[in-house]
């Protein structure tokens, strides 16, 4: 949690214990599912590689071949049509994906994504929709030559008994080298699934409640010096008290 201080903590970020424990089967399953869903040769290759990568890639220390994979799902109290249409309007994604600065249309099915990296390092990639079916799914991947290699898919399924829509999203990034690699790690590296879940919960709030609940900007009395220092060091860190629940609060909070 001190990676603000230096780049050298990258390996500890990537080798986050919880991530290492849960990564293998999630990565394997998700990559295989994603690969198969693309119904193409490269997709099959990806699916096959999924298991191997899940096992080998994550056992190794950081290297340029590492990937960040995030997966999450959420129940939305709306129809698949509404969910799909709101999501498909990519230019609006930064409204609930707080780590994104902008998404701009640059071609027929091509978009430029700009994420807010730490200390002014921008992360940018161009991506295209490789396949989509209206109200059902969208899958995308970065264009060749893009600064970042990434791919993902989003599915919209009708939940049983009129309970709305189940949205399932998978995204993975190749881990680039150097400064950009650090920026990506900072954004997604700690708990990729958590970052994803935060995004999806905010999407849910926007669709259902029309706004994202917040306390940012509300008044409060004087904070402690310790709290102020911690906040300065990492604005997203929750401020724990020295209670046994501090264990819970050690859970990293990355909303980027």
């Amino acid at each position: 949690m001190n990676e603000n201080n230096s780049n050298t903590n990258l390996s500890s970020v990537v080798s986050n214990r919880a991530w290492r424990q849960s990564a293998p089967w999630i990565a394997g399953a998700a990559m295989a599912a994603f690969g198969l869903s693309r119904r193409s040769k490269s997709g099959l290759a990806l699916a096959a590689a999924g298991g191997a990568l899940a096992y080998a890639g994550w056992r190794a220390n950081t290297s340029e071949s590492d990937q960040f994979l995030a997966r999450g799902s959420v129940l939305l109290n709306c129809s698949p049509q509404e969910a799909y249409q709101r999501y498909r309007n990519f230019e609006d994604l930064p409204k609930f994906m707080f780590h994104l600065e902008s998404v701009t249309k640059i071609g027929e099915r091509q978009y430029r994504w700009v994420a807010l990296g730490p200390v002014g390092i921008p992360i940018q990639w161009d991506a295209e929709i490789v396949d989509e079916r209206e109200n059902e799914f969208i899958s995308w991947r970065s264009l060749p030559g893009s600064e970042l290699t990434a791919a993902g898919s989003v599915r919209f399924e009708k939940a049983p008994s009129g309970r709305g829509t189940i949205l399932t999203a998978i995204t993975h990034f190749d881990h680039p080298a150097g400064k950009l690699g650090y920026a990506v790690a900072k954004l997604f590296g700690k708990v990729p699934n958590f970052v994803m879940q935060q995004d999806l919960r905010r999407f849910k709030a926007l669709i259902e409640a029309g706004e994202i609940a917040t306390t940012e900007g509300q008044p409060h009395g004087p904070r402690s010096l310790k709290a102020a220092a911690l906040k300065l060091a990492d604005p997203d860190r929750p401020l724990a008290r020295s209670a046994p629940m501090s264990e819970i609060l050690k859970q990293q909070r990355r909303t980027a």
């Binding site: 129940l75 306390t215 929750p238 859970q251």
Partner: peptide, 27 residues
């Protein structure tokens, strides 16, 4: 929020969209 599954079931104190720190409670 009045509009999520739980609010519509009148389980208002279980609202899904009103706790920005939901993840601490989830832990």
């Amino acid at each position: 929020c009045g509009r999520c599954f739980f609010c519509q079931q009148k389980l208002w104190s279980c609202c899904e969209n009103s706790n920005p720190n939901y993840w601490i409670a989830e832990k």
